[in-house]
């Protein structure tokens, strides 16, 4: 079975307001407001552009945001939270 792909909302699908350590995110499709901490806003920004597998996402986070300290397991856990919140769809 190929790796699952993860996809974020369309480019205009989110309103983002950085507050402090938290970022308020309004999800247009659901009308739900989420409060996120790093690296969730970065994950969403990447997955809004295109669908990626877990490993490709890990690469992009390291390359674009210098978030090299996260493990694959930790990222998978964050992704699961975003999937449950409906912000990310598992394809």
């Amino acid at each position: 079975m190929p790796d699952a792909l993860y996809r974020g909302p369309p480019e205009d699908g989110l309103l983002i307001a950085p507050l402090d350590a938290f970022t308020a995110v309004y999800h247009r499709a659901s009308g739900i407001t989420h409060l996120l901490t790093e690296p969730a806003p970065q994950i969403l920004a990447i997955l809004q552009e295109r669908a990626l597998s877990l490993d490709s996402l890990l690469d992009r986070l390291e390359r674009d945001y210098d978030l090299a300290d996260g493990t694959r397991e930790a990222l998978a856990a964050r992704l699961d939270e975003l999937v449950e919140a409906g912000l990310v769809a598992r394809l």
């Binding site: 307001a17 309004y26 009308g31 409060l35």
Partner: peptide, 27 residues
Amino acid sequence: PAEAFVRMTQASTNYVALGEAGFRGLT
């Protein structure tokens, strides 16, 4: 700011019902 935002969403009975306008207004 994040604490103020959360407390105000709880102090507003129509924050959710206003959708995007509520988010823009409160942030």
